[in-house]
Design a binder for these strands. Structure first.
Lengths: 241, 241
DNA sequence: CGTCATTTTGAGGTATTTCAACGAAGGTGG
DNA sequence: CCACCTTCGTTGAAATACCTCAAAATGACG
């Protein structure tokens, strides 16, 4: 039996990785690849959705779990003040659909055209019964989300708009790391989305972008693409928490 | 076999609760109670610690998992800017010690005198091998942490100091809900800790407290106790995100 | 009871937020 | 294919809120 690898995180009271995670790569995002993905794909319904498509609204009965095959989505919540708080952005291979008391707590909307796999709860139950390891791996993905939430916390704790923006760009950059050199990054969301995620006004995001551009650190080409011109100073801003 | 209860959360791509959680109460904090606690207690080392005791520092080799028997702790990280960012407060029955790459990522220090149970990784491994359900329950606790982190995100997203403070007080109030009427609440941490958790300066926390007191919403008696005088307006501030 | 850290209070500086208007981009229909 | 329209993004100026610095007051602790 594989030895348990328990890793601990002061940021939260829970295990980081237990035996069944030991054999996996460093990125939990890859957990559901390979044979398990095939097994799940057999039971999933695949949807091809346009951009700006509302997958579900907060408060709706939670009946499915979703896995992104391709594209990007945002999960958010509209506050009574009129503001919108984006909790997270999800990309290919990410999973979403967590709820409380049988109801989705956040709304989810596509940012780009998406291919999304829907897994019915009952179907998933059946799969879990025959594949305990899949069940555990689903749980393990929670750690990924937790890490994201904690990183989001760090971002929101910063006082300077440029720093927050840089940290978001950094996430997007590392996500595209394999696809291209790393300096080039695509921004699937709008400025408004970025603002709602960063806890800033859209104007502040715009000005922060402008500042990074004027300083020669980042070049924004179009609205959905950017290039990191000065990785050294960029990293300095990101790390200067 | 119990049916899987899959709950989904737009806030993160992961399962909320699977079969082994179905039989548990609504509060994940109670997951490790009863027989399992006894089983773990057999293998744990119990420490009695004074307030302000450093349990471990970020970066130290992660060798143990900790469970709080009594008292309160803070998990934090000192930034190079000199600021301190508190990630979370933990209380009785909470678990902490998560790490990455074999090292604790946050420091942990007691706020009050504590009774803390330490579980060695290797010991825990042995327990897991004989009690698969305990392993799963440990994992399930992650959801609790995730919820906390998301709530922290919501707090940090607010712009007004009084609102942030009120949300923290609300958490403390609901935590003491069973112990007393609910209006009375004890504040184990210092103003400075609150500031570091809320992403504010200590002065801002002080002024926010003052404001809540002048408005007749909360009365602070001493430095570690408060009473909610006007639950109606208090709830209004908390909910006015 | 005295010392020291913590907290409060005050005044000024700075960043972001708002409010308002302009400019650009994307989508739709003619 | 172009024009229009709606949405999104940028820019400017004033207001607000918090932050910083500094000093006094409170409370904790030995």
């Amino acid at each position: 039996m594989p030895r348990a690898v328990v890793a601990l995180d002061g940021n939260g009271p829970s295990l980081r990785a237990v035996s069944f995670l030991a054999a996996c790569g460093p990125d939990p995002i890859e957990l559901l690849s390979g044979a398990h993905r095939k097994e799940l794909a057999r039971h999933a319904t695949t949807h091809v959705l346009p951009a700006r498509y509302v997958i579900y609204r907060a408060g709706a009965a939670a009946t499915s779990l979703f896995i992104i095959g391709d594209g990007a989505v945002k999960t958010f919540r509209d506050l009574r003040s009129g503001r919108r708080r984006i909790a997270a952005f999800f990309f290919a291979r990410d999973m979403f659909g967590l709820a409380e008391a049988g109801r989705y707590v956040n709304s989810v909307e596509t940012l780009t055209p998406c291919r999304i796999h829907e897994l019915d709860i009952h179907t998933l139950t059946g799969v879990f019964e025959h594949h305990a390891d899949i069940k555990l791996q689903f749980l393990a993905k929670t750690f990924h989300v937790l890490r994201d939430a904690q990183h989001h916390n760090i971002i929101m704790g910063r006082r300077d708009a440029a720093g927050r923006l840089a940290m978001l760009l950094h996430v997007l950059a590392t996500r595209n790391w394999l696809a291209n050199g790393g300096a080039e990054l695509s921004i699937p969301m709008t400025r408004s989305d970025m603002a709602n995620y960063l806890g800033l006004s859209m104007e502040a995001v715009s000005r922060a972008s402008r500042r990074l551009e004027l300083q020669g650190i980042v070049a924004f080409t179009g609205r959905h693409h950017a290039r990191i011109l000065d990785p050294r100073r960029f990293a300095a801003i990101v790390a200067d928490v």
